[in-house]
Computed example of a mutant assay.
Amino acid sequence: MAQTLVGERVVLLDPAGAAVGTALKSEVHHEATPLHLAFSCYVFDAAGSLLVTKRAAAKTTWPDVWTNSFCGHPAPGEDIVSALARRAADELTIRLGNVRPVLPRFRYRAVMPNGVVENEVCPVFAADTADPPEPHSSEVGGFEWIPWPMFRDDVLSGRREVSPWCALQVADLARFPSDPLFWPAGDPADLPPAVLDPAA
């Protein structure tokens, strides 16, 4: 589903994760951000290294902060795998393979120092790519490939500062095997209702 940046909309949710409406993405993040649908993705190369990105300075939430490979919001009515492919292309100019949910129930709320809130039901996916990233500067301020065990341990120890959602996700992902190629896929049935039936 094509959207212009000005008209991009996010899906608003009830506490159970069902869709209850939409809002303009440009207007949804403030001191009382409503619960809405998002996703995070961890992209690995054939050696099991993680693509880590720095959020662009122009981002509304957590600018210039290092985080997982990319995040995004499904458009109203958009299949989440299609949304993942769209954001991977828009942010990093990469194609994804072996896309699977790994933390299908993840949600979080975080507050920036200026009071702006993130409040998301945000299932986490893992994927692979063979493409060299060519990031768009409006989305990504930098990137690097890091072996997953090194990134995991640095985040858990506090040696590496990352976005609040990434820190929480890494703590959950740390229970999985050190080789991300052997991470178990989560049950798709555990994804929020708004993902399971995007047309609702």
Rank of each mutant, 00 (worst) to 15 (best):
P164I: 08
H136N: 13
A171D: 06
P123H: 11
D131A: 08
A171H: 03
N119D: 11
W165F: 13
A174E: 13
F143T: 05
C122G: 04
W165L: 08
A167D: 10
W145I: 05
A127W: 07
E118Y: 07
H136Y: 11
V155M: 05
P123K: 08
S138D: 14
P177K: 06
W145F: 08
G141M: 06
L168R: 15
M150G: 01
P135Q: 00
V162L: 06
V124M: 12
F143P: 01
A130Y: 00
A167K: 12
A167H: 13
V140I: 15
E161F: 04
F143K: 04
V124A: 09
S138G: 13
F176L: 13
A130H: 06
F151P: 01
P133L: 02
P132S: 13
E134C: 09
V155C: 01
P164C: 06
P164A: 05
G141E: 05
E120K: 10
V124I: 11
A171C: 01
D153P: 01
R175W: 09
F151H: 12
P147S: 00
A171G: 02
H136Q: 14
S157W: 00
V124T: 12
R175S: 13
P133M: 04
F125N: 12
A127F: 10
G158K: 10
L168Y: 00
D154M: 12
S137P: 07
E161I: 00
R159Q: 08
V170E: 06
V124D: 10
D131H: 03
S157P: 00
D128R: 08
P123N: 11
V155R: 06
A126R: 09
P149W: 09
P135H: 03
V121F: 10
S138Y: 09
V124W: 07
D128M: 03
R160V: 11
G141L: 02
G141D: 05
G142V: 01
G158R: 12
E118V: 08
A130N: 08
S163W: 05
E139W: 13
R175E: 12
D128A: 09
T129R: 11
G141Q: 04
S163G: 14
V140H: 00
C166L: 02
P164L: 06
W145E: 07
S178T: 10
D131L: 00
D172S: 08
L168W: 03
R152W: 02
R160G: 06
L173W: 03
S178C: 09
R152N: 04
V162Y: 07
A127P: 03
S138K: 09
E144F: 03
D172Y: 10
D154L: 13
G158D: 11
E139V: 09
D172C: 11
E120L: 07
W148V: 06
S137G: 12
R152E: 13
V121S: 14
W145C: 02
V155S: 04
S178E: 15
V121T: 14
V124G: 08
G142F: 00
W165T: 10
V121K: 11
W145A: 02
G142Q: 01
R152K: 14
C122M: 11
V162S: 00
G141A: 11
C122Q: 11
R160K: 15
D128E: 15
L168Q: 15
S137W: 09
V124H: 09
I146C: 03
S178N: 14
A174C: 10
V155E: 07
M150P: 01
A130M: 04
P149F: 07
P164G: 04
L168E: 14
G142H: 03
E134Q: 14
M150T: 15
